[in-house]
């Protein structure tokens, strides 16, 4: 628990923070610190200066966007997502997934920005954000740009963030009319790290799936949209049989990383199960005209 020597600074404004991040390659933003602190304890990465962005107003708060979506500050905690009436009203599942991240202590500190920027393949939120077509708002001294969540996660601990750039907020578009979302994890223990996750969003047109998103996590280093399965789902019946058939080929040809919790083959099989369950949840949620199923959970 003994860190390497490091500098700490708490800028008073976002501009100040961006200034420091731009000028120092060894600067790292510190928000909730629920992952970064562990990295520092284990001395697996060297940081010159920790830039504490946790108190910056510009990165706080959840706002309703004009189109009915959500704009979530990068430093919004999991607990805030869980308790946000706005989130629960239109993106219930996002609050529910946040409510099942590890434990209360971590939820009180861990942030949506940190969860995304670390790009740890075990993290809970990235696959869901990709399934919900979320957009990552990035800012640097040079200005602001938006990156689709599907393009944000680049690899194991790697994102689209350029040096000196900070994730400032995540925009989640409104759920399309007639849509619902689902999310399932195969975790090693209750609310613990997952071996496989699947997140889905489906839009129904009567008894037919008009549109779908199916995102798998932990079968690769980054959340992966299974567009083949989406194509099989789209236009098909929103029945259990049809969903199961569409999900039977999920993850075929992928090589999930094996570890003590299971082989690559096991994870591939589990990806199919998780995918089917997530899509089924999404269908049920859409039918219940809920933006995320009560049965969702994690």
């Amino acid at each position: 628990m003994l860190l390497e020597q490091v500098e700490y600074v708490r800028p008073q404004s976002l501009d100040e923070a961006l200034e420091i991040l731009a000028n120092d390659d060894g600067a790292a933003p510190l928000a909730g610190g629920q992952s970064l602190t562990n990295v520092l304890k284990n001395r697996v990465a060297s940081v010159d200066v920790l830039v504490d962005i946790s108190r910056l107003d510009d990165l706080a708060g959840i706002a309703r966007t004009a189109d009915g979506g959500l704009s979530i500050g990068a430093c919004v905690t999991y607990d805030e997502l869980d308790r946000s009436a706005d989130v629960r009203q239109t993106h219930w599942l996002l609050g529910e997934v946040a409510a099942h991240i590890e434990d209360q202590q971590i939820r009180n500190k861990g942030t949506i920005g940190g969860n995304c920027c670390l790009s740890d393949p075990t993290n809970n939120l990235p696959p869901l954000l990709v399934a919900l077509d979320a957009v990552m708002e990035l800012r640097s001294r040079a200005g602001q740009r938006s990156v689709a969540s599907a393009d944000f996660f680049k690899g194991y601990f790697a994102t689209a963030l350029e040096p000196g750039e900070l994730l400032v907020s995540v925009t989640v578009p409104p759920m399309p009319a007639g849509s619902g979302a689902g999310y399932t994890s195969l975790a090693v223990g209750a609310d613990a790290k997952a071996m496989v996750r699947a997140a889905a969003r489906v839009t129904l047109d009567g008894g037919t799936i008009a549109d779908s998103r199916l995102v798998l996590a932990r079968v690769a280093h980054v959340p992966v949209r299974d567009t083949d399965a989406e194509a099989r789902l789209n236009g098909g019946d929103a029945t259990e049989e049809s969903v199961a058939a569409a999900c039977a080929g999920v993850a075929d040809g992928m090589q999930p990383i094996a570890d003590v919790h299971g082989s690559s083959e096991y994870r591939r099989q589990m990806a199919k199960v998780m995918a089917r369950r997530a899509v089924s949840q999404a269908v049920a949620a859409a039918r219940g005209s809920r933006n995320g199923s009560k049965a969702g959970g994690n």
């Binding site: 434990d103 090693v188 223990g189 209750a190 609310d191 613990a192 790290k193 570890d259 003590v260």
Partner: peptide
């Protein structure tokens, strides 16, 4: 169900901390 200490072929412990060694919680 949860706790196991495993070594790979090179003799590296795969669960060297509580991050990897999932200790049974009140929910488990």
């Amino acid at each position: 169900l949860y706790e196991s200490l495993d070594y790979d072929e090179s003799g590296q412990l795969q669960e060297p901390s509580f991050y990897e060694y999932h200790v049974g919680t009140a929910m488990d």
